[in-house]
Design a protein around this nucleic acid. Structure first.
Lengths: 315, 315
DNA sequence: GTTGAAATTGTCATCGTTGACAGAAAGGCG
DNA sequence: CGCCTTTCTGTCAACGATGACAATTTCAAC
């Protein structure tokens, strides 16, 4: 009974006599044997694991997506490991290096700013990458993103339709110019309407960032009557800061967010927001990943996901 | 220039001539060489990684703690991988198996129900485990927990002091009897005061669970004037459900939660809650882990962390 | 019983690294 | 210069699995 035979049994390979198989399984049970995945991955270059790399765990969008992705990935018998980069390219490099050298079958990445070349590099090393919310044309990299331009336009349209005219935007300071698609949509919606948009202020995409951003925005332009925020977390900060200044939401200033995190519905006022459907995203990113893993190719056509406006109380 | 020499340079080992070292470093740079961590971990039985295993990512307490742990762990040059179990012992087993067989240096676990023997088993296999919020006496397992009994007593005391007399409790259905320390504290506080407590209802520790729990609780005992909730997420659900029934918080029914997640302060009414200080917890769990990793021993005295009541608007 | 093909099992090399130890080079000293 | 010590570098085996292929067993058919 050689190690090779045990290996065959463990991997359910063809060509083991039923009696031997049973015998091996009993021995495995008795001895509590567990295959060493390190050794296996070392030789097969495959580990049966997938990495999900996000920027900031404390943004509730990430955990919710993570849960969904984990679920889908586990259906293919793989384990998902999560890691976060704090939106720092160096930390992202560390994380990707670890994941790569543990031979993950692929990673799903919310890329840190200015890390396109880094990602290209890992793709060249053979790491299969699914990039969320950016467009990188390279073999081994698949791109999945929401139609944020349309999303911003939906939001602006809604605000204009409800009579708002002085609309500012709270953008994220982490988005490099290439990825400022919400801003493009914001601008283009005003162009189409033949109106001028209000100021755009960039801040960290957090609750605190939202508060700070609003302070700057209202100092810049005190007569604003509506805000389009980069995401729900910023929108929440915005609502807080607006109320702290003694103005009311939505009566004085309307607020529209992006994401539709669970919490948005529980806020008072409940948040009007552009929904980026996590379930949709989780389906598409795992589909992309599986197509990479199971198929021989290294190309995957970019996917653009639709968005939808969820009108609640804040606008 | 043998592989052994390169290995020595990469690991900063003693006994390499300066000239050779420089030469090797240049070659590494030029060729883009990266050591294969799989092979290294296979032979050294150490991977320089740590696992953090939680039940539910969508409970905001976990990501916030994860961020803090990640930060602390990375200071020792290690990478943290996160995984979640959905509070399912089988999924926990899969996750721990993966982590173990990737030779993580240790794991921090929020244990799924009924998994004590499982954890003992992995500890016997050599996995170093830090258990949060449970007490398991076994070599290789360290335990860190909050003083939840005191926390519940603080919460009840506060409610009694503000004149509430009919106090119900929203507990978690995932806690096995051994771990119902909030409930013990709840009961003992009433015993001490010579009063009777209200009904205790168990539900899933989620927003939806909180809503469902409140419905059952108020059907059972419609005259409740206060609720102690298992955690903030349930408390948020409770507030929602109470208001949906046309009662007000805190005027009609006061609500106290546990955790003090960031969001608690942003709710309206802002949540009164028993703070389980994440920063404290992250310090202690990583301390425990490092003591396991760097020291030869396999014993670590259980740590009990203090809690504090944060009074806001909901009670 | 022999033969041949098919089914089953075993052997050996390999993945990329490090531990143990041996060999080579360099330096110190009489 | 020879000898010894110290410093540096290389060789070999091993970690635990699998790929390639060889060896053995089984079994049917002649």
């Amino acid at each position: 009974m050689s190690a090779r035979t045990v290996s065959r049994v463990v991997n359910n390979e063809y060509g083991v006599a039923e009696a031997t198989r049973k015998q091996v399984l009993e021995a495995i049970e008795e001895l509590g044997y567990r295959p060493n995945l390190l050794a296996r991955a070392l030789i097969t270059k495959r580990s049966g694991t997938v990495g999900l790399v996000g920027g900031d765990m404390t943004d509730p969008y990430f955990p919710a997506l993570a849960e969904a992705v984990h679920h889908r990935v586990s259906e293919s018998g793989r384990t998902t490991f999560f890691a976060c980069t704090g939106n720092d390219p160096q930390r992202q490099d560390m994380v990707l290096r670890s994941l790569w050298s543990y031979a993950v079958d692929g990673v799903i990445v919310f890329p840190a700013p200015d890390s396109v070349d880094q990602l290209r590099g890992y793709a060249r090393l053979g790491l299969r990458i699914v990039v969320v919310d950016d467009v990188i044309d390279a073999p081994g990299i698949a791109c999945v993103r929401f139609d944020l331009v349309a999303g911003a336009r939906l939001g602006v349209r809604h605000l204009l339709d409800s009579g708002r005219r002085r609309v500012g935007m709270l953008a994220s300071e982490l988005s490099p110019p290439r990825r400022r698609r919400r801003e493009s949509g914001f601008r283009s919606a005003f162009d189409d309407a033949g109106l001028d948009h209000g100021a755009i202020v960039r801040a960290p995409p957090t609750v605190q960032g939202g508060e700070a951003g609003i302070d700057r925005l209202l100092d810049l332009q005190p007569d604003l009557d509506a805000i389009l925020a980069y995401n729900d977390v910023m929108a929440i900060g915005a609502v807080r800061a607006i109320e702290a200044r003694g103005r009311r939401v939505p009566d004085d200033i309307a607020v529209v967010g992006f994401d539709d995190v669970e919490l948005s519905a529980y806020m008072r006022p409940a948040l009007t927001t552009v929904r980026l459907d996590r379930s949709l995203l989780s389906i598409e990113v795992t589909r992309a990943l599986h197509s990479f893993i199971d198929a021989p190719g290294d190309r995957f056509d970019p996917v653009v996901l639709p968005v939808e406006l969820v009108v609640r109380q804040s606008a």
